[in-house]
């Protein structure tokens, strides 16, 4: 098949696509809906993952030291902890002065509080270190090691216990959402493939009488087949564009509810970040699906 004929079969496919009107509309609706559900479940899965990640990042262990522990001692403990790179992601030292400044700024620089602190005459806050773990399930281990460490007597208190329950729940949610997302995603992809294949089969079935005519006036099998393959590709392409529009609208409305829930920003920012990747994937998936469905569905109508 030369380029002239290939170009003609493409035009033929494009023309079918436009002139089929209602059937084209139905096919695109179904394909778009399938692609939309698959990409939305991808985006929601990613969102829940990022929200949890964001929450985890806010989780930390706060170790307060007794007032008589000198700063050098705390810094050396900090350095020692930094050595456990597999478990400890970061260790931040907060001196008594920093803690006071932070406390005052968090209380909105209230003059009454500032005065109260002054009346005590001495900084009432303790120096502390803030430890972040590499993985959330490591907090427990870190706390246990701190309690048994050589500096256990220097520690005034570890405020992890009270957060323990929240951490455990977070871990469970994270695991569940990932598993559910994977299962739902695969299920929807499977459904999308089935529906699209069947819709295209119906489209081709509605043309079956034309194949005989085409062959009768001298069209080769490949010449009969190519327009439908191109038509299938167009279904994929247009459906991908339609899906992107749907996703934009949905993201726009979801966005306000997700402000600040993720490091990346809100749902719209996430969508925009992934938009190009999603579009490419949809086009690749949609076009492949369209092309293969058409190619397979038409086979039975073309005698060898």
């Amino acid at each position: 098949m030369n380029t002239l004929k290939l170009w003609r079969t493409f035009k033929e496919g494009k023309e079918n696509f436009i002139r089929n009107g209602w059937l084209t509309f139905a096919t695109i609706s179904i394909l778009s809906l399938s692609l939309f559900i698959v990409s939305l479940s991808f985006l929601l899965g990613t969102t829940s993952h990022l929200v949890l990640q964001n929450m985890r990042e806010k989780v930390s262990i706060n170790v307060s030291f007794n007032p008589d522990v000198p700063e050098e001692r705390i810094v050396s403990i900090q350095n020692e902890l930094k050595g456990y790179t597999k478990e400890v992601a970061s260790v931040e030292y907060i001196s008594r002065e920093d803690a006071l400044k932070q406390f005052l700024s968090e209380s909105g620089n209230d003059p009454v509080i500032a005065q109260a602190v002054q009346e005590i005459g001495e900084n009432p806050l303790l120096a502390s270190i803030v430890i972040k773990a590499v993985r959330p399930d490591q907090y427990e281990t870190i706390v246990e090691s701190l309690k048994k460490s050589t500096f256990q007597n220097d520690i005034s208190r570890i405020n992890y216990e009270k957060n323990k329950k929240i951490f455990e729940r977070l871990n469970r949610i994270s695991e569940t959402t990932q598993r559910v997302g994977l299962i739902l995603g695969s299920l929807f992809i499977f459904i999308a493939v089935l529906i699209t294949f069947n819709t295209i089969r119906i489209t081709i079935y509605s043309h079956r009488q034309e194949f005989e005519i085409m062959r009768l006036v001298g069209a080769s099998n490949i010449y009969v087949r190519m327009p439908f393959v191109f038509e299938g590709a167009l279904y994929g392409l247009v459906s991908s564009v339609v899906t992107m529009i749907f996703l934009s609208v949905v993201s726009y409305y979801i966005a306000p509810y997700t402000n600040g829930a993720m490091a990346i920003g809100n749902f719209m920012d996430l969508y925009q970040h992934y938009a190009f990747f999603i579009f490419l994937t949809l086009v690749a998936f949609g076009v492949t699906l369209g092309v293969f469905s058409s190619a397979i569905a038409i086979r039975r109508y073309l005698k060898a």
Binding site: K5, E210, I213, G218
Partner: peptide
């Protein structure tokens, strides 16, 4: 008649030449 319903008279006749390249 065996005409292709979605093609005009011109296109139906042209098709026989198109397939011939």
């Amino acid at each position: 008649f065996k005409l292709l319903p979605q093609k005009t008279a011109f296109e139906n006749v042209a098709y026989a030449l198109e397939v011939d390249g």
